[in-house]
């Protein structure tokens, strides 16, 4: 069977939108993400009926209701488990998972770990607003220390988890980062994620206008963005600030450093190699302020996915075997009782 050779009818962003009234707060970053996803999908050569959006619980997890695809709004934290079952039952479906920082990394952290570890072929969109939106603004596992919220009125005391570091630590093979308002960047990242076989993990910085407004302003403001963001491109030197600054690997300390680029000479800069896990970890870990925020595909090094391996094993195991149910029932030692007198 060859699905690829089938002509896939062209779609427009509107074809991917449902008639449901979108219920996020006005100005919420989720709107922008919805728009970017609906813009990316027509470019992926996929069909709505073979596309599945699965989410947990949270503001972000309302996402599937607004997508004219198959959708499953499940329970808090468990979307990775349902996605795993869907993909194993029908590997032909194109599976997207939408989750929040609380949904995916607090209550569902364990499932997320195992989804990524198994490398189930799907795209994970983690909307990181560093807060529990739907439950009215409590601090979350990605909130920065000192976050004041109804459950931490005097400031939160916990160290946050970095979603991309978590994904790499779990054995993730595709880890990327983008921003809700990055309407050009995000569709490109979504395309890359979709092309990747295995779990593609994308952290999307998402502004919650009601409970955590502006937490990402320091690097999302248009004006200062060139100074505060570094857009990674495979095979290209790590330049930012309109080509005036860059990242260098200090070979003695084995740490990254920000250096000035003089007269366009990028020779001392590190060249982005998506398959380099050690550098990927450094890029994720760079403290903001001293360093810019790394955006784009941070790490990509494909490996076989669980669903694919399972299919292959199944084919190998069942090849040439006939499933004889009557023989299965009789398996083991059996004996015949005859309809004789005396028995």
């Amino acid at each position: 069977m060859n699905e690829i050779s089938k002509v896939i009818p062209a779609t427009k962003p509107d074809d991917w939108a449902t008639d449901q009234e979108v219920r996020w707060c006005p100005g919420c970053g989720d709107y922008a993400i919805l728009k970017a996803v609906q813009r990316a999908l027509p470019e992926l050569g996929v069909e709505p009926h073979n596309t599945v959006f699965i989410s947990g619980i949270g503001c972000s997890s309302r996402f599937p209701y607004y997508m004219e695809t198959y959708g499953f709004h499940t329970i808090h934290g468990r979307a990775p488990t349902i996605a795993t079952g869907v993909k194993l039952a029908n590997p032909k479906l194109d599976v997207w998972l939408v989750t929040g920082d609380g949904d995916g990394l607090s209550i569902g952290g364990n499932h997320m770990l195992h989804l990524v570890r198994r490398n189930i072929d799907c795209q994970v969109l983690l909307f990181n607003n560093e807060i529990y939106g739907l439950t009215k603004g409590q601090y979350s596992p990605t909130s920065r220390p000192g976050t004041r919220s109804p459950t931490s009125p005097t400031g939160s005391l916990e160290q946050p988890v970095k979603p991309c570091a978590f994904a790499i630590g779990a054995g993730g093979r595709f880890v990327a980062r983008t921003i809700d308002t990055a309407q050009k960047h995000m569709p490109e990242i979504l395309k890359r994620a979709h092309a990747h076989k295995g779990t593609s993990f994308i952290e999307i910085y998402q502004n919650c206008v009601v409970y955590n407004d502006g937490v990402f302003d320091a690097f999302t403001e248009k004006k200062s963005a060139p100074q505060t963001q570094i857009l990674l491109e495979h095979g290209k030197p790590m330049l930012f600030a309109n080509g005036t600054r860059g990242l260098k690997l200090n070979r003695e300390t084995l740490r990254l450093e920000v250096v000035d680029v003089v007269e366009g000479d990028a020779s001392q800069l590190i060249v982005h190699d998506e398959t380099n896990k050690a550098v990927a970890n450094m890029l994720i870990d760079m403290p903001f302020g001293e360093f810019p925020v790394a955006l784009g595909v941070i790490y990509c090094d494909p490996a076989s996915s669980f669903d694919e391996a399972m299919q292959a094993q199944e084919q190998q195991l069942t090849a040439g075997k006939s499933a004889d149910f009557a023989a299965l029932l009789r398996r083991g030692q059996s004996w015949e009782v005859k309809a004789e007198a005396g028995r």
């Binding site: 990775p80 488990t81 349902i82 795993t84 869907v86 194993l88 195992h114 399972m310 299965l328």
Partner: peptide
């Protein structure tokens, strides 16, 4: 041991994941 009978078994990370995956598979038609 019965995969030739169109049986897929999945050892999940916990019981919640086990039922979650089963629900996903049910939705997908198993």
């Amino acid at each position: 041991r019965l995969r030739e009978f169109d049986v897929t078994t999945f050892q999940a990370e916990d019981e919640i994941a086990a039922i979650g995956a089963a629900i996903g598979a049910a939705w997908a038609g198993s």
